[in-house]
Design a protein around this nucleic acid. Sequence first.
DNA 1: AATATTAGTTTGATACTCAAAATACTTGAA
DNA 2: TTCAAGTATTTTGAGTATCAAACTAATATT
Lengths: 137, 137
Amino acid sequence: MEIKELSKSIIELYEKLSTWEEGVVKDSGLTTAQNHTIEIVGHEGAIKMKELATKLGVTTGTLTVSVDRLEQKMLLRRVPHKSDRRSYLIELTDKGQEVFKMHHNHHLNLTREMMADFSEQEQLAFHVAIKKVLNNF
Amino acid sequence: MEIKELSKSIIELYEKLSTWEEGVVKDSGLTTAQNHTIEIVGHEGAIKMKELATKLGVTTGTLTVSVDRLEQKMLLRRVPHKSDRRSYLIELTDKGQEVFKMHHNHHLNLTREMMADFSEQEQLAFHVAIKKVLNNF
DNA sequence: AATATTAGTTTGATACTCAAAATACTTGAA
DNA sequence: TTCAAGTATTTTGAGTATCAAACTAATATT
């Protein structure tokens, strides 16, 4: 019985995060897909198209147009691969880095907000629980 | 310092849930938007276009085409509103109910999976923590 | 050297999204 | 009651996202 309630709460949390994320992204003038691309390149650093497409869960065809648009917005750039002339490395421009950091800060602020009334103890326990959950699926 | 790590874990959880959800939805032959519509109508019951659009966070123009497609798939239907002839109530068909229940079960299974190595105590504490988080933003 | 494989782009088609205009109906005020 | 204003939904026009399949160029294999 309890599991039903828990499931409901998890879904509610997911939906709320989702809505929050969409709001923040929209304010930044990017689409969700574009933001996701910036996030991954920001975290991974210079990365090949193919690899990036895999991490995003899209085809390289989809990624090509997406990277085109982000390049137009001056947020990232294609750098020729040194040893493989078929390939590029995608990396953030300075402006892209800015956007990435900004978004990162938004996340930090949200996390602080969520933890507002948690004691040190509770916060730690919550973190441990999440890590356990992450290992389970 | 700790907050950064926690933020990272929360993002990881969110991304993982997102990927999971996308996979499940894709298998069901629906798009994410279509699934979301089914979910809300499933939870809310008969609902007006305008209200549904608001809950989905899209314009009514967007919803019109989306509902058209779901109607073609026989998952929901437009029922004329009794007292206001401009308006419809959107409701699930039997087939739509099936899809909704199926998805619901997937969620329950995932929750069980996530809780696999949690004691009764831990699970309860985790649930309480999530509810606290939900109140904070 | 010839063939197979790989990285990325292009193409054609469908879906999602919005803002703005259009349609049909309801409501409120003269 | 009638007519103007407001509301619910649909339609239209334009941009983005997405995929599968075809294509190009370069690398790897045999």
